[in-house]
Design a protein around this nucleic acid. Structure first.
Lengths: 73, 73
DNA sequence: CGGCATGTTATCATATATGATAACCACTTT
DNA sequence: AAAGTGGTTATCATATATGATAACATGCCG
């Protein structure tokens, strides 16, 4: 598992948008059909998620996939 | 494995950029440090790749991650 | 204080992505 | 015809993402 930096950046983006929308990690996880523990792992950059996982999150957040990936790197 | 459509779309985007740059699947795969067979799988949308795999490809293609993900969906 | 909400971390089983090899097809070139 | 090029597909072993559960920490509130 590499690219911690990228994963962390995207994780931070998820947190950022999630907090703006005022949802809890718990609720976002539920909207994605997984557990809050897994969402925590993702947001912390501790997992090299697949594109479908990221897509689920983007859908749950109501943003485009691009918005999560666009970390200005 | 779901989101065949998304994976396929991104795969098509990879093909598109790869062909514009005039590189073979073989060479792109080599630049990413994997085999052409795996690149074929990815381009065909037959794998739910991780973000780090997509990132490697974007780097090898000399484009931003966003450019691959931006499928106007 | 005792609950409750929010988030983190460890750990487990299971599914699947990754990396590699090999066989194959369609073309092109020698 | 034989060899080379570009791509596809099947299959395998291994690493790891996913999904789940549980224990924990922190802060807040009744």
């Amino acid at each position: 598992m590499k690219n911690f930096r990228l994963q962390r950046k995207i994780g931070e983006k998820i947190i950022q948008i999630r907090e703006i929308k005022g949802i809890t990690q718990q609720d976002l996880a539920a909207a994605c059909n997984f557990e809050k523990s897994n969402m925590s792992r993702i947001e912390a950059g501790r997992t090299n998620f697949t594109i479908s996982t990221l897509f689920k999150i983007s859908q749950a957040l109501g943003v485009r996939l691009t918005d999560l990936v666009d970390t200005a790197d």
